[in-house]
Design a protein around this nucleic acid. Structure first.
Length: 370
DNA sequence: AAGCCCAGCAACCGCCGCAAG
DNA sequence: GCTTGCGGCGGTTGCTGGGCT
């Protein structure tokens, strides 16, 4: 049995708000506040609206200091970098943009930024495609073999492999915190990770401070290829959190959290990176904001961070972008982070390459472990 | 001028987490 | 520990207006 509706749908007005309704709602909230109960609010003021609808109207439109439209280049960049870091958590993104609502940002992303981004990617892709073809021709001429990961190869130092693993995204530094402290408390980190969505396994070996990452749906899935890439070495070498590799190769949403967390932990251990946590504030936005903006690294004005030297874009994404299909976070990230897929590089080979990378990295870090 | 198409945006829907009972 | 109710969130829908044919 489903939940009872929050209001009597038959007696509730839907659709656009009239100026009179806006005025009623605004003046009431200005005088009395929301009273902590949105559901009861419309009855109090004689509005035939659902409480949720009132809340939405207030938050997205009537609230003071709301900005609409006219997104600046800086805001574009911030939205993009946050989207890359944390995905479609619009409320968190909105919390970093004063005067912007999550709905506004979401709409802006869906209607403009995504296209802007993909349009640029398409350009990059086309120019890279040309270069790649040249490169393949040269390889063919010189050796007669294609550059694909080889199961038997011990050549793990190849730059051709490295370029399959893009750097973790970097984030825009903005002034944020009123106070700062080093975030080196593992309990706090765990708490934060759990808050991030409960995808963090709480199985925990306190004696050895081992985080069990078992790859099940209820726990955080760290794709080994990403976590063990050369971009996060300090995560394992300097922190006391050890990594139990999972076998999952899925590019799930969870793995994006893992990226954020990997970067977060990397930040924690980076000597120059101050982790900013607002003291006394416990809400997720504040914590995340502190974490996200702890990394005073580069960003340029043209979203170039997304098009790192190592990024290759999947044709599939280009096609769907061109046809106007909606593109999810997973697709987007697949496009941004997945290894190149082409006629000479099939899926199995790709996975083998990933597994090799993973196994090799594991051996480097845990020589005794199988 | 009329019809069509599409982008932009406001609003809705349904799910989830949390707190209170 | 459970149920219930609410707030919050992200995805989706559908209306509207402008541009194009």
């Amino acid at each position: 049995m489903g939940r009872a509706p929050c209001c009597d749908k038959a007696n509730v007005k839907k659709g656009p708000w009239s100026p009179e309704e806006d005025a009623k709602l605004k003046s009431y909230i200005d005088q009395h506040g929301t009273g902590g109960n949105w559901i009861a609010l419309p009855q109090k003021i004689g509005l035939k609206r659902c409480g949720k609808s009132c809340r939405l109207r207030w938050l997205n439109y009537l609230r003071p200091n709301i900005k609409h439209g006219g997104f600046s280049e800086e805001e574009d960049n911030l939205i993009c970098s946050l989207y890359i870091s944390i995905g479609s958590r619009w409320s968190i993104i909105a919390a970093q943009l004063p005067g912007r609502t999550d709905n506004d940002i979401k709409n802006y992303w869906n209607t403009r930024l995504k296209k802007k981004l993909l349009g640029k990617q398409r350009k990059e892709h086309q120019s890279r495609k040309g270069k790649l073809q040249d490169h393949h021709h040269q390889v063919k001429r010189s050796s007669g073999n294609l550059m694909v990961p080889n199961n038997n190869s011990n050549n793990t130092n190849s730059s051709d492999q490295i370029h399959y693993w893009p750097e973790l995204p970097v984030l825009a530094p903005i002034p944020y915190s009123t106070g700062e402290q080093r975030f080196n408390d593992h309990a706090a980190i765990r708490k934060f990770l759990i808050k991030l969505g409960g995808r963090f396994s709480q199985d925990h070996d306190h004696d050895h401070d081992v985080m069990i990452l078992d790859g099940t749906s209820s726990s955080l899935q760290f794709p080994a290829d990403q976590l063990l890439s050369s971009t996060t070495p300090q995560l394992y070498e300097q922190s006391s959190i050890n990594y139990m590799p999972c076998s999952s190769m899925e590019a799930s949403n969870n793995s994006i959290d893992a990226q954020l967390i990997a970067q977060t932990l990397y930040n924690i251990d980076g000597t120059d990176h101050h982790l900013q946590v607002l003291q006394g504030q416990t809400n997720l936005q504040s914590e995340l904001g502190g974490l996200v903006y702890s990394n005073p690294q580069r960003i340029d004005g043209n979203l170039e961070l997304i098009y790192s030297e190592h990024t290759t874009v999947d044709n599939r994404i280009m096609t769907s972008a061109a046809s106007g299909e909606s593109i999810g976070w997973g697709d987007m990230m697949n496009a941004l982070i997945s290894p190149p897929v082409g006629p000479n590089y099939d899926h199995q080979e790709m996975q083998q390459g990933m597994m090799q990378e993973c196994a090799f990295s594991n051996q480097l870090r845990y020589p005794g472990m199988q």
